[in-house]
């Protein structure tokens, strides 16, 4: 039911449809092509210079990646991404709501502060705060989560601010007069209506945690070995390209899966 097409949607002309399809194909190629050599490398036991395709296929890359700790790294990155998303999404939603409803004095200045992590070089921020966190005695994994949550806030805030600005408060007024409490209104009306935006914000926040390198390395002090750290160290070491390819693929695929999931949520909400 959710995916049923809106009967009022305008029909595209054939010419426009064709151009659209060509555009989609180009975009897909743009995204997929860089992955092709990665996939080939991941399954290559031997692939030397002049050959167009690997000379020997195998699972040596996968074995090496698992030996290097890909499994636990994958798990750590997932947990880190989820924790950052779980913190930055509700915070961004609250900040976005407050900013969109103009209940914040000097809203522009507050927004600028919230956006500042985008402007400041993460390396400098991480180095500076590392010292502070050490002095305060904050455990390094907590420090990593804190910093990455702040880094994810600009994305979730901006996205949720736009969502709340487009959100019609009339739906909530209507729900209240129909007998819904303020709490029921949030859970039965506001959140379902904002689900696509929330999914998008959570996705972006997850990516911040999932893909971070600098903060995890500097503040985590090498204790929190996530997938990006493994990829970097494997890529910096001797040429085991198959292992690097497997590690890279395992850090690319989860966001892709999530992206499709978020897209589906959005489509269901618009149907």
């Amino acid at each position: 039911m959710g995916l049923r097409k809106d009967p009022r949607a305008p029909h595209h002309s054939h010419a426009r449809g064709g151009a659209l399809h060509a555009g989609h194909a180009a975009l897909a190629a743009w995204l997929v092509l860089p992955l092709v050599p990665l996939v080939l490398w991941a399954a290559a036991d031997r692939w030397t210079a002049p050959a167009v395709l690997p000379q020997a296929w195998g699972t040596a890359g996968l074995r090496d990646a698992v030996d290097a700790g890909a499994g636990t790294g994958f798990l750590r990155s997932t947990v880190l991404g989820l924790v950052v998303a779980a913190l930055a999404t509700p915070l961004g939603a609250m900040a976005g709501r407050a900013l969109a409803t103009h209940r914040v004095p000097l809203g522009g200045a507050v927004l600028a502060v919230l956006l500042s992590p985008l402007v400041l070089p993460p390396f400098a921020v991480a180095l500076g705060l590392d010292v502070l966190l050490l002095r305060l005695g904050v455990p390094s994994p907590v420090g990593v989560v804190l910093l990455l949550t702040v880094a994810a806030l600009p994305y979730t805030t901006v996205l949720m601010r736009a969502a709340y600005a487009a959100h019609d408060r009339g739906f909530e007024d209507e729900a209240r007069t129909l007998g819904a409490t303020a709490r029921q209104t949030v859970f039965h009306v506001q959140l379902p209506l904002l689900a696509p935006a929330l999914a998008g914000a959570a996705f972006l926040a997850f990516l911040v945690g999932w893909s971070d390198y600098v903060v995890t390395l500097l503040v985590g002090g090498g204790q929190l070995v996530t997938l990006p750290l493994l990829v970097a160290s494997a890529a910096a070491a001797t040429g085991n390209e198959a292992q690097v390819a497997v590690l890279s693929l395992s850090s690319v695929l989860p966001p892709l899966v999530l992206l499709v999931a978020v897209g589906l949520v959005g489509r269901r909400a618009r149907a």
């Binding site: 019609d168 009339g170 739906f171 007024d173 209507e174 729900a175 209240r176 007069t177 129909l178 007998g179 819904a180 409490t181 303020a182 009306v189 379902p192 209506l193 689900a195 909400a269």
Partner: peptide, 20 residues
């Protein structure tokens, strides 16, 4: 008395049907 306990229901100019 909050709106939900007033025993009133409102119809606005916009239908405001919950789209989900």
């Amino acid at each position: 008395v909050p709106p939900e306990r007033r025993g009133m229901a409102m119809v606005f100019q916009r239908p405001l049907l919950f789209p989900h």
